[in-house]
């Protein structure tokens, strides 16, 4: 299990292949890569700045991974999240989960992303022609996280 916060880009293919290397019990590897869109709320976005809370961010992500481990039968998990200034089309985040079977890996990967979106202390500021603005949290992200809670 690994959690990394970094300013530099990552090689998703390399990271994914390293996650399953030297193991023969992995039947499924599910990954998600988040990218910087060039359009948000109808405005062209040229640049995104990601701020975070050093110390808390790592703990929050580790807690999310350990919840996923308790809930699903997963072999390994990796989260890489970039911070700093990113341009449109650049990679922001990678979540990869390995498991013996696909069902557990799909669920765990989506749970990690939904939890990251609502619990990990990152904030995005985007630059448009009109200037810079902080993104507002979306109710749909809270709802996506809510559905993982036992009803």
């Amino acid at each position: 299990m690994a959690v990394r916060i970094q300013t530099e880009d990552f090689n998703a293919g390399l990271e994914i292949s390293q996650l399953s290397a030297k193991r023969r019990d992995i039947g499924a590897l599910v990954s998600f890569v988040g990218l910087v869109r060039d359009l948000n709320d109808g405005d062209a976005v040229s640049q995104l700045t990601l701020e975070h809370y050093p110390g808390m961010t790592e703990k929050a992500l580790e807690a999310i991974v350990s919840q996923a481990q308790q809930r699903w039968d997963i072999v390994d998990a990796l989260i890489i999240h970039r911070v700093g200034v990113l341009q449109a089309t650049e990679q922001i985040v990678l979540v990869a989960v390995t498991s013996a079977h696909r069902g557990q890996a799909f669920l765990a990967c989506e749970f990690v992303m939904d939890s990251l979106k609502t619990e990990a202390p990152f904030w995005k500021k985007e630059r448009t022609a009109a200037g810079e603005r902080w993104l507002e949290a979306k109710a749909s992200d809270d709802e996506a996280r809510q559905r993982w809670n036992p009803s």
Binding site: Y53, K117, A120, P121, W123, K124, L135, E136, A137
Partner: peptide, 10 residues
């Protein structure tokens, strides 16, 4: 202690 807006990462 820390204060911040609702998070928007990912």
């Amino acid at each position: 202690v820390a204060f911040f807006p609702p998070v928007t990462g990912g």
